[in-house]
């Protein structure tokens, strides 16, 4: 399938390089803004070539030290555990759905799909998790609500399984007398690796970027805050101030003016993204095909 035509290779590489530039430049701007001197940033605006550099924003982050690092730890913990459970549960759920003669297949697919369109809203969901299941102010508050399983992921994996893994394979395996779990483990998982890694990436990013669970389910126990919660709190405080500046009594604005400025937000955004930038390329090798289909078939 790989086309070795030289002109074609050059052309697609050029196109993709342009894409890379379009992606990288804004990142560069983000990084530059985070190391631009605060006053220069406000007075002169954002630029790729700041007049004056300053590491003030990062010093600020380091000063609040423990908090940031704890939030980091929390984010990593939640992301790793959540992603593993997510991928596991999704794969287990999607594989039967991909079998074309599973009784009730359409109904169950609809059952999954329906949740993508309709939801009861935040309050009922909050009542469910907080009041009945008691996840509030615990790690489970970050882990369980909404993110543990995504209907979208189930449907995507199902689609992949049903097209990329031939039916005959299952039948062959069954005639061999392989148990369903064994088929799942030794055929479906290896063959589904590309999509599972992809879904894992999405799920991981969803956990990494999530701040809503922290907002609603972590109230008193702010030690559980993730890095996104810290960032989001700063941003929402700033917006509140911008919207209410003229209404608020001045002492309130005094308290709010301690909220870090744009440069620090940029720095925190960068710090929040950094680990992913490092980990991401390491994941790349899994995107390519797991094992050759032919091998199994033969």
């Amino acid at each position: 399938m790989v086309n070795r035509n030289k002109g074609y290779q050059i052309a697609i590489n050029i196109v993709m390089m342009i894409v890379v530039c379009m992606v990288v430049l804004p990142f560069l701007l983000l990084i530059m803004s985070s190391i631009t001197d605060e006053n220069v940033l406000l007075a002169k605006g954002y630029t790729f070539f700041p007049e004056k550099f300053s590491l003030g924003a990062y010093e600020y982050i380091l000063k609040s030290g423990e908090k940031i690092f704890r939030a980091y730890g929390m984010t990593i913990l939640i992301t790793v555990i959540g992603t593993l459970i997510n991928v596991g549960m999704s794969a287990l759920f999607s594989y039967p759905l991909a079998l074309k003669n599973l009784p009730g297949r359409r109904v169950i697919t609809f059952f999954v799909f329906f949740t993508m369109l309709f939801n009861g809203g935040l309050v009922p969901s909050y009542i469910m998790w907080s009041t009945y299941l008691g996840v509030k102010d615990t790690v489970f508050g970050l882990l369980l609500p909404n993110l543990l399983l995504s209907s979208m992921n189930i449907l995507l994996i199902r689609t992949y399984f049903s097209t990329s893994i031939p039916d005959t394979l299952y039948e062959a395996a069954q005639i061999d007398g392989a148990g369903q779990l064994r088929i799942f483990r030794s055929i479906v998982l290896p063959l589904g690796k590309p999509i599972l890694v992809t879904i894992g990436t999405f799920s991981g990013l969803a956990y990494w970027n999530d701040w809503t669970n922290g907002l609603y389910y972590i109230n008193k126990n702010t030690e559980l805050y993730t890095i996104q919660n810290l960032l989001n709190k700063m941003v929402s405080d700033l917006q509140f101030l911008a919207q209410n500046a003229t209404n608020l009594s001045s002492s309130a604005t005094a308290e709010l003016s301690k909220v870090p400025s744009t440069g620090v937000q940029m720095a925190i955004a960068f710090v929040a993204i950094l680990p992913i930038i490092i980990v991401f390329p390491l994941l790349q090798k899994y995107y390519s095909k797991g094992i050759a289909l032919g091998a199994v078939k033969g």
Partner: peptide, 30 residues
């Protein structure tokens, strides 16, 4: 998928997903 050079392939694959990492607030700033 057609890129032969493995390194470049990895680079493109990562690059295309990077913007996904930025929250809309930060995108708004940019």
């Amino acid at each position: 998928c057609d890129v032969i050079n493995k390194r470049l392939k990895k680079l493109y694959q990562s690059a295309i997903l990077f913007p996904f990492l930025m929250s809309m607030v930060i995108v708004g700033y940019i």
